[in-house]
Design a protein around this nucleic acid. Structure first.
Length: 547
DNA sequence: CGGTTTTGACCTGCGC
DNA sequence: GCGCAGGTCAAAACCG
């Protein structure tokens, strides 16, 4: 349980009142006691002897207040315990699900190999989990939707990628570029089932191995193709469309895409393609996200009289992260900040919130998948947490767009939350996550979570749990949107995660709705929630993995 | 003096 | 091929 270690990374340069708000429950009694202890003597000394009765009455009043405070702290502690147990239950369910999933994958693997050996002998393994598996050669396609739209790269071609689609389509049926079918299929399976998309080589082999599957994938599991829009296609690592920073980065290090890139290179290559846009009401020239930025350009873009400023991260010399800042043409009080890429360096604590959010969104867009915690290397572990954060915490009104040259997640933090959004919080989550994983142009889901998150930035004293404060600081807590009802958000979210499994609205398109159903079915949803909380609370570790 | 901002020029991709 | 728009570069100016 990471709950116990959450308090250590205390990110933001704390404003005085915020510091008070973020004290853990465990420290509260001592704090309160010390406060009372220091206050009482003053009370005694400051009262003249002639007013001892009044002083005594005051003492009694203080004691009553102390009792009340203790009772309140007891409640808070109880609440915290309840949340902890809930979280541990969720984590347990996630692990059991994962174990079960691995078993299923194994069974399918065995079934596949035996099916090939027995020629036409199909083994209907795990039909409940794998409906519609009608081709023995691709037994895992349908698994994808069960694992948050994974196998980003294995599909060998994104729905929007120009030319490469044609290439993969035209290459259908030519298996001469298939060096090791079994091996590729294995990777394919891994990527499908456990979201090892990152581990897949974006170059020829994976895509080529899928050549005869690509068309099928595109039709049966189009939701998987988002990430391949980025760089997962055959041999296009050096010809990918430069999405903002990608152009500059490619210019600076053209060899990065040409070679047989390391995992990190691939990660960066892929991460460069996705963008996260944040809309927030802000008076300052830029949104205070805790990072250090250097302005390197400014342009007047068409359709907006407000200039667009270009910033580069200066925390590390070669950090690829860039951001564009532009005021909304319709409402100049709204600041639109678009982040690109992921930081390749440890972040200052104050910056980890937004950075993890954006990189999480990038990760989700880029890979559309989570990796197995069991196999978590540093990189994979980061991916795991990132996706979790993205899927679970991209709560604010979220739009996923692939209309541009690269997929973009837009977080609209300008609209206040509607009360009902608490009740239906899971749907927007699922729709957003599914849409993000799918890479489809998706209608913005009125999740209106922003207040739910931001409210925790204010950290109501009675709800000063680690979880809530961690959630609250996702966006730095500096964007405070006052909304008391949303302070119940986390609780209702958790409770709903337990009681979920029913209807979904008709907000999302059909495909994403299918994914939404898969995602919001209890175990996955809860696991994502648990991972999300773990991710947020373990920012320190996440920052370390961002190296 | 070092770091940041400004700003015009340049590069690249895309649509016609 | 041409023009447009977006993005980046880099020298000069600015600032603490």
């Amino acid at each position: 349980m990471e709950v116990a270690v959450v308090e250590s990374p205390r990110p933001p340069p704390p404003p005085p009142q915020a510091k008070e708000e973020k004290r853990s429950d465990a420290t509260k009694p001592e704090i309160a006691a010390s406060m009372v202890g220091s206050a009482l003597p003053i009370v005694f000394e400051s009262f003249p002897s002639t007013q001892r009765e009044a002083a005594a009455a005051g003492v009694k009043q203080e004691e009553r207040r102390l009792e009340a405070a203790r009772a309140e702290m007891g409640e808070v502690r109880e609440e915290n315990e309840r949340l902890k147990s809930m979280l541990s239950r969720i984590v347990g369910q996630y692990q059991s699900l994962q174990t079960h999933f691995l078993d299923v994958v194994k069974v399918r693997e065995l079934a596949s190999s035996s099916a090939k050996a027995a020629a036409e002998n199909k083994i209907p393994a795990a039909p409940a989990l794998l409906p519609g598996t009608d081709d023995g050669d691709e037994p895992y396609d349908d698994l994808v939707s069960l694992s948050l739209g994974t196998r980003a790269n294995s599909s060998g071609g994104g729905p929007r990628r120009k030319g490469h689609d044609d290439r993969s389509a035209s290459s259908s049926g030519t298996a001469d570029e298939m060096p090791n079918t079994a091996d590729d299929e294995r990777r394919h399976q891994i990527s499908l089932g456990l979201g090892f998309a990152r581990g897949l080589p974006p170059s020829g082999t994976a895509a080529a191995a899928d050549d005869d599957k690509a068309s099928h994938d595109a039709s049966t599991a189009p939701v998987l193709n988002l990430s391949s829009d980025s760089s997962g296609s055959a041999g296009d690592t050096d010809t990918t469309k430069p999405a903002l920073a990608a152009a500059g980065a490619a210019r600076k290090s053209p060899s990065a895409g040409a070679g047989d890139g390391s995992a990190d290179d691939e990660v960066q290559q892929q991460a460069k393609k996705a963008r996260v846009s944040v809309r927030v009401k802000c008076d300052t020239p830029t949104m205070p996200d805790g990072c250090q930025w250097r302005k390197y350009g400014q342009k007047i873009s068409k359709g907006n009289p407000c200039p667009r400023a270009y910033y580069r991260c200066t925390v590390a010399p070669h950090c690829p992260v860039r951001k564009q800042v532009q005021r909304c043409a319709e409402d100049t009080s709204v600041l639109i900040t678009t982040y690109d890429c992921a930081h390749n360096h440890p972040l200052p604590p104050a910056a980890t919130a937004m950075a993890s959010t954006t990189s999480a969104a990038v990760a989700m867009l880029t890979y559309g998948s989570t990796t197995s915690a069991a196999s978590a290397s540093l990189v994979h572990g980061h991916q795991y947490h990132s996706l979790a954060a993205a899927a679970g915490l991209l709560g604010p009104t979220t739009m996923v767009s692939t209309a541009a040259s690269c997929p973009t997640i837009t977080l609209d933090l300008t609209s206040p939350a509607a009360p009902h959004s608490l009740v239906h919080s899971s749907l927007p989550y699922a729709a957003a996550a599914a849409a993000a994983a799918a890479g489809f142009e998706s209608k913005a889901v009125p999740a209106a979570w922003s207040s739910g998150y931001l409210a925790y930035g204010g950290a109501h004293p009675s709800y000063d749990t680690k979880i809530s404060s961690a959630l609250g600081h996702l966006f730095g807590g500096s964007l405070g949107v006052p909304s008391r009802p949303e302070q119940l958000y986390a609780q209702s979210y958790l409770q709903r995660a337990n009681s979920l499994g029913d209807g979904h609205g008709a907000v999302a398109p059909a495909v994403t709705d299918t994914l939404a159903k898969a995602i919001t079915s209890d175990p996955s949803f809860q696991s994502v929630l648990a991972a999300a909380i773990t991710s947020v609370m373990g920012r320190g570790g996440a920052a370390a993995t961002q190296k």
